[in-house]
């Protein structure tokens, strides 16, 4: 078994919402080896997205430990985390979240603007990423000129353009029809198998889970023991 790329120990996330104390994640201990395609499944409010956000350091845990790619995320400053995320994590949203004022190529180029690459290099990398997801002929299209499936493929290209070791996807097929969802899942599977990317995907869709090498179930903020 490969070295764990993600390790959590008693990971807990609690917060106050409208004076109610909410335990979003409770004592989650988990190891995800490098090169795995893991899905996190569970009903709404089970803590799947919260766990994904904590892995991406988009949120801070209130308890426990979390190490991702060898970094103890609790020890990093906000600025260090931003740089770490840019270099190591690609994130795919359910709602694509492309910037409407930018073309497909410019959207994919966006994370590279934080690197030391010059403009020609950035555009070359972005075009390569778009070719990889089969959108080499849509470089100059704006998001409004693309279908939902194509938008999500642009979002995948944006997530992989910095060549991150870890790709996190939050219900990436949730807003897509069956055909588009199949395309997206095929691409993610290819990224895992052909390029060795570690993928953690939150999904409700049992069909999507079939693409994964491992499935974890969460309920009421807890990791189900049978899946651990």
């Amino acid at each position: 078994m490969s070295e764990p790329i993600i390790e959590t120990r008693n990971l807990t996330k609690e917060f106050l919402r409208d004076e109610f104390h909410v335990v979003a994640l409770k004592d989650v201990t988990l190891e995800i080896p490098q090169g795995e395609f893991v899905t996190l499944m569970g009903p709404s409010g089970s803590g799947k997205s919260t766990l994904l956000h904590l892995i991406a350091a988009m949120d801070r845990p209130t308890g426990g430990e979390i190490r991702v790619l060898g970094h103890n995320l609790r020890e990093l400053t906000d600025r260090e985390i931003a740089h770490w995320r840019n270099e190591n994590v690609g994130f795919i949203f359910q709602q694509f979240n492309l910037l409407p004022v930018l073309t497909a190529l410019e959207n994919v180029e966006l994370p590279l603007k934080l690197t030391h690459l010059n403009k020609a290099e950035r555009l070359e990398h972005a075009a390569t990423a778009l070719n990889l997801v089969g959108l080499g002929d849509r470089l100059g299209h704006f998001p409004r000129q693309l279908s939902g499936g194509q938008e999500q493929r642009v979002a995948i290209a944006r997530a992989i353009v910095t060549d991150p070791a870890l790709i996190l996807a939050d219900e990436p097929t949730g807003n897509l029809d069956a055909a588009s969802a199949q395309e997206v899942l095929t691409i993610l599977s290819k990224l895992n198998k052909d390029f060795g990317k570690t993928i953690v995907m939150v999904t409700h869709d049992p069909h999507a889970a079939h693409f994964a090498t491992r499935v974890h179930h969460l309920e009421k903020g807890e990791l189900m023991p049978d899946a651990a």
């Binding site: 988009m58 906000d78 740089h83 270099e87 994130f91 910037l99 934080l114």
Partner: peptide, 16 residues
């Protein structure tokens, strides 16, 4: 605001 969240997810710092 949502786009700001997206940019931060991509690695944009608060300063940027």
């Amino acid at each position: 605001v949502r786009e700001v969240g997206v940019l931060k997810t991509l690695g944009f710092t608060p300063g940027t």
